[in-house]
Amino acid sequence: MENPYLPYPVRIEKIITETEDRNLKTFTFSFINPEHEKKFSYLPGQFAELSIAGKGEIPIGIASSPTEKGYLTFTVNKVGLVTSHLHNMKEGETMGIRGPLGNFYPWEQMQGKNIVIIGGGFAFTTLRSSIIYMLHPENRNKYEDITVVYGARTPGMLLYKQELEEWEKRDDINMHITVDATQDPTWKYNIGFVPTITEQKIKTADNAIAIVCGPPIMIKFTQPVLEKIGFPPERIILSLEMRMKCGIGLCGRCNIGDKYVCKDGPVFSLAQLRDMPPEY
């Protein structure tokens, strides 16, 4: 009998410190057994449980794109027992990954649409996965305009800075990077909160679908802006976080009403969320 709790052994290939507070690191993993890579077939929006023997497991969104072969990446904020241990681990060390888990962004529904991506802080991980995925030559023509609003508290708190610069230079993606505030005179992008910049830069909801991922406060203030622009709740897509253990809908803790965030989510449309108790 297949054991859905058993992690695949992986090796840490690379560790990058992403942010100036050194609290966010991006880990690149490779599967120790190549067969497991084939089994780990995923789409952007899904997550996995990172497993450290002796410490436990944590559910983290997959930051790499399925178009990036041979490895998986996760960006992890240092907050608790497992993440603190992980932040002290070294390249070459062995741990585990269990997944892919949960649902993904509505890739079928998104085909032929203008895609608006709105991200805040370190919740940009599965959005990075989505952007890499859509910009891949095999996929780019499936989507119309791609517009990204991404904000962090300061320039030093932005993730994936090198990639952000590369995307800025491209003409097939519209980037609107913003920070809450900065003293840096060389800052050449926007200053302002994500909802404000969204209101300034996104002019139409025609044939568009919005994917929103960020801290609760950002989501709360971005929703009314998107609705004002004209996005119906069916075309506002959100990704939720919840404390999880099993990741497969069995252990009972991550429910909102009769839905489990781990299995029925983490991706929900605003229309779906409005039919669920506001307990998240």
Binding site: G56, K245, C246, L250, C251, G252
Partner: peptide
């Protein structure tokens, strides 16, 4: 009631 937790012990 079936809810459970998962913990590591060394």
């Amino acid at each position: 009631c079936w809810c459970f937790d998962i913990q590591d012990e060394v």
